[in-house]
Simulated assay, not measured.
Amino acid sequence: MARQIKKVFGILALAAPLLSPARLHADEVRYAVGLGFEFASGSYGTGIHTDAVFLPFTVAVYPTQRLDFSLELPFIYQSTSAVVAGQYMAMQGQAGAPQPSMLAGTMMGGGMRTSASGSNVDTSQYGLGDTKLKAGYVLYTEEEYVPAIRPNAYLKIPTADKNKFLGTGAFDGGFAVELSKWYGDWFADGELGYTIQGKSDILAVKNYLYYYAGGGYQVGERLRPMLLVKGSTTTTEGGGPLLELRLRTKYQLSTHLGLDGYLAKGIETASPDYGVGLAVSYQF
């Protein structure tokens, strides 16, 4: 535990210059903090059922209306060591939205078991997950016939204990492009990205494409239900693609406080059978 605490403080120290408003020279800097709860259950094509809980704490900085940076520190629990749990469940967001835990980063085992032995594969594990740093920029604002375009990039830092199968033990990186467009009270958005996974000795990982696409309707000033699909190409050697359907709802409790929840149903074998998530965010 002491070693994990040192890791957290080390990451915060390294990220401080990135998240510092003094270095960004902005006229107005906005901040957001968030705390989420996500649960997923399934066998992911491994033949071993795993329940996983993902608790991400997120800090975000918005130095301008176009530019944003975020840092995510998650806590993970998983009922077995058959897959690298927790990393798959991060909730996707919309371009430019100040939401916690929004990166669809490294995904679960994708149908390929970890190197856990038969004697310890059924052992539950918990601890700090991998840290994620993300930056995004709205390259083009929405116009009548043109969607908003927001490229983004992320870095996953291996702060999770790979010996507990809470992470792959390697650095990952990725980049993506988000598109979003309003049609009156209706809206559509999506993202297409590519992840480069570092070599791992507990899981035969491979680089992959990931995506989400969906739309919804703005009900009044506070409520926004939406339906989306989320998936990726196979994330491991010998694994299968991932695909799930999500019903998501965002509710703005006040000017500064928001809720974001979802229900998920896996479609492909390598995806969770089902999942649920709820996040609360506060914007300064």
Rank of each mutant, 00 (worst) to 15 (best):
S79A: 13
T80G: 05
T80N: 05
T80V: 06
A82F: 01
V83E: 05
V83D: 03
V84R: 06
A85C: 09
G86W: 06
M89N: 11
A90E: 07
M91S: 11
M91N: 07
Q92M: 06
G93Q: 08
A95H: 08
P98G: 01
P98M: 07
P100K: 00
S101Y: 12
S101R: 10
M102H: 01
M102T: 02
M102R: 10
A104L: 12
A104N: 07
T106P: 06
T106D: 05
M107T: 03
M107F: 00
G109L: 00
G110Y: 05
G110E: 06
M112F: 00
R113I: 06
S115N: 15
S115W: 05
S115G: 09
A116H: 03
S117E: 13
G118W: 06
S119T: 10
N120M: 02
N120D: 15
V121R: 10
D122F: 02
D122C: 00
Q125L: 00
Y126K: 04
G127I: 09
L128F: 04
L128G: 04
D130P: 04
D130N: 11
T131P: 03
T131V: 09
T131Q: 04
K132W: 08
L133V: 14
K134T: 11
A135Y: 03
G136W: 04
G136Y: 12
V138K: 11
L139C: 07
Y140L: 15
T141S: 11
T141R: 14
T141M: 03
E142W: 08
E142K: 06
E142Q: 14
E143F: 00
E143W: 03
E144I: 01
V146F: 15
V146M: 15
P147D: 14
P147Y: 14
I149Y: 13
I149S: 10
R150F: 03
R150C: 09
R150G: 02
N152H: 14
Y154R: 01
L155C: 04
L155E: 01
I157H: 05
I157T: 03
P158W: 13
P158V: 11
A160Q: 11
D161M: 08
K162F: 13
K162C: 04
K164H: 13
F165P: 08
G167Q: 15
G167C: 09
G169C: 13
G169A: 11
D172P: 09
D172H: 11
D172I: 05
G173C: 12
G173E: 09
G174M: 11
A176T: 07
E178Q: 15
L179C: 04
L179W: 07
S180W: 11
W182I: 05
